[in-house]
Design a protein around this nucleic acid. Structure first.
Length: 487
DNA sequence: ACAGCATATAGGATCCAAAT
DNA sequence: ATTTGGATCCTATATGCTGT
């Protein structure tokens, strides 16, 4: 072993200094950084630079002194792989654990949060004054054989599904059977890949809560099967149609749009809200929906900034799916910016929860909505029946959720909502089938849809007729929603 | 509510090489 | 001959993110 008092690369030093100047005030880190920057041991046999045990022991000792207890950190936490690659450092000792009274590995805490974040930065592309640096993609990209494996099971599963004779859901069968989807999508595969990449570039590296976003999304995309063709299955107790495997269905809308262009995206406006208003007979909401300006009015009424309407949407969705009033209250507190994002885990005390629940229940719109939901839940639990959009009765035994805590009745409540959502969108599938060759559903999104028109339809006849049919159905049933082109 | 995918974490098992 | 440490698997679980 040879003591080598050399410096690490300038890039590394600059990055650490720039990213976490406050880290120098952290004793454990100072100890570690001191070693990293100014003293390394070189193993002559392996040419590894090693972290000597006595140093780990020192750091562990400090750790004990600081918080009086040891933390569990394994090797990967101490020396992330990316860090090793970037610096050439290699940790050879697992450190100390406590077994049979002896010290051994996994019992040291060295790296404070800011350093961990800093280590995620790609050293070859340090931050400039314009960018925060390139976020390193975690996880390994799939190897060729892994990709082939994945694709094979994907195709097998699809073929199995398509060869069934007892297809319970003809519309799902249709969505999968429109084989032109793959032809159409594959033809422009490279262009789409590029479009997706630039859409990802446009995403923020971190979201508002400081969590990695861009890296996560690009990783999701890299796991997509070679073809972007979605494979649908009817699953669970709902009428919803979900895609199987990694899919376009849960990519951010900007990326999805880029991949699917020139398909057009149509959405039912405030569908959940409209269905709840009608189905649960909430007159206040019905009036609001017919006046328009739904989200802005709700934001104003609930005291949430208009820019934060996503949070209100979340509140509405959760209400539709049967979230408990207690949890809704926490969600509302978060929407107001008064509760932390971890409030669902570290629940605030009963008094605080009651406060937000009270605010919610006394609100003109959401208060009425909650009352309407109560009535619906009561009807379902007393008649032990859920009624779908076609009037067909569904009994508790048709739902897999257990009765515990009213879980089954919540499922039935959600089912009634989603059944109506599907019923509203049904004309789109029917119309696409009638016009095979002229138009194609490229992605199904529950209350929205991506459609490609093959023929240059200048007057937009097909589009108009499709929208007309859905809207006629909504009007006929009294749902204050409409299908519109997402600009 | 439901679907999906990924990560972090911890413990166990196992092999190899070195130390005792 | 036995123990120990390191590396590398595997398995669970818990958790977190996305979408509607």
């Amino acid at each position: 072993m040879l003591y080598q008092p050399t410096l690490v690369t300038k890039d590394f030093y600059d990055i650490v200094k720039k990213t976490i100047p406050e880290a120098l005030a952290e004793p454990r880190f100072a100890c570690f950084l001191d070693y990293l920057l100014f003293s390394r041991f070189l193993d002559e046999d392996t040419n590894y630079r090693v972290c000597p045990e006595h140093l780990l022991a020192d750091m562990e000792d400090l750790s004990h002194k600081l918080d009086g207890k040891s933390r569990n950190y394994n090797r990967a936490t101490i020396f992330p792989k990316e860090f090793e690659e970037a610096t050439g450092l290699h940790l050879l000792s697992q450190g100390y654990r406590f077994k049979d009274g002896r010290a051994s590995a996994y019992e040291i805490e060295i790296i404070p949060e800011p350093l961990k974040n800093a280590l995620q930065l790609e050293l070859l592309h340090p931050p400039t004054d314009k960018s925060q640096g390139v976020y390193l993609e975690r996880g390994k990209p799939l190897s060729l054989s892994e990709r082939q494996d994945k694709k094979r099971t994907f195709i097998e599963r699809k073929e199995n599904y398509m060869s069934r004779t007892d297809v319970p859901r003809p519309d799902v069968f249709y969505l999968n059977a429109s084989s032109r989807t793959s032809t159409f999508l594959n033809r422009q595969h490279n262009a789409r890949q590029k479009a997706a990449e630039s859409a990802i570039e446009a995403l923020p590296i971190y979201d508002a809560d400081g969590k990695a976003k861009r890296g996560y999304v690009s990783q999701m995309l890299s796991y997509l099967p070679d073809t972007f063709e979605p494979f649908y299955e009817a699953k669970g107790d709902t009428h919803r149609i979900y895609t199987n495997g990694t899919s376009l269905q849960n990519l951010p809308s900007t990326v999805r749009k880029a991949i699917l262009a020139p398909s057009k995206n149509y959405d039912l406006k405030a569908a959940q809200l409209a269905i709840m208003a009608k189905h649960w007979e909430v007159s206040e909401l019905q009036a609001l929906l017919e006046n328009g300006e739904v989200w802005n009015t709700l934001c104003l009424s609930l005291g949430v900034p208009i820019g934060e309407k996503g949070k209100i949407k979340r509140l509405v969705y959760s209400t539709a799916f049967g979230m408990s009033p207690d949890n809704l209250a926490i969600l509302y507190g978060q929407a107001l910016g008064q509760l932390n994002s971890d409030a669902t885990k570290n629940r605030p005390d009963e008094k605080a929860r009651a406060h937000y629940l009270n605010l919610l229940e006394s609100n003109k719109y959401l208060g009425a909505l909650l009352q309407g939901r109560k009535r619906a839940a009561k009807r379902i639990s007393s008649t032990k029946t859920a009624r779908d959009a076609d009037g067909k009765e569904h009994k508790p035994r048709d739902f897999s959720k257990s009765m515990v805590g009213g879980g089954k009745y919540r499922s039935m409540l959600a089912f009634e909502m989603q059944s109506r959502e599907k019923w509203l969108m049904q004309p789109v599938i029917d119309f696409a089938q009638e016009n095979e060759g002229k138009m194609l559903i490229t992605l199904w999104l529950h209350d929205g849809v991506y459609i490609h028109f093959f023929k240059d339809d200048r007057s937009g006849k097909l589009e108009k007729e499709m929208i007309r049919r859905v809207n006629a159905r909504a009007e006929e049933a009294g749902y204050a929603t409409s299908l519109v082109l997402d600009a």
